[in-house]
């Protein structure tokens, strides 16, 4: 996750409280989604950004995961994400995200 987005996540968490923040990712690969999820839960694994060593433990979902999909209007989802859902390896993404959440999410 780039340094500026890490700063934004940190600022919003400080402003609203970690229990009130949910991060939604749109990464195209399970590995990339997992890295971003790790950054906002266990801290920046590259130790380069504002979240280095900061364990926010936020709730984090990929937009192709059912937890997110079931919360939004089906037509809007289809219009905005339907095509990409066909393209992405959704099972791999779910596996990565679930593993990170079960280990690091505090809420």
């Amino acid at each position: 996750m780039d340094l500026e987005n890490q700063r934004r996540v940190l600022d919003l968490t400080n402003e609203y409280g970690a229990e009130n923040v949910v991060v939604v990712l749109g990464a195209a690969e399970g590995e990339a989604a997992g890295l971003a999820a790790e950054t906002v839960t266990a801290g920046d694994p590259t130790f380069a950004g504002p979240l280095a060593g900061v364990q926010l433990g936020l709730r984090v979902y990929h937009c192709c995961e059912p937890e997110f999909k079931n919360e939004v209007d089906a037509d809007v989802y289809d219009e905005q994400i339907g095509m990409m859902e066909m393209v992405l390896d959704v099972d791999d993404i779910i596996e990565e995200m679930t593993a990170i959440r079960s280990e690091f999410t505090k809420f």
Binding site: A32, G82, M83
Partner: peptide, 20 residues
């Protein structure tokens, strides 16, 4: 690098659009 196979992802997007 975790960024996937970019051309293949693009072709799949074109194909998926074709399916829609």
């Amino acid at each position: 690098a975790g960024a996937g196979d970019v051309p293949t992802a693009n072709y799949k997007m074109i194909a998926a659009l074709g399916v829609m």
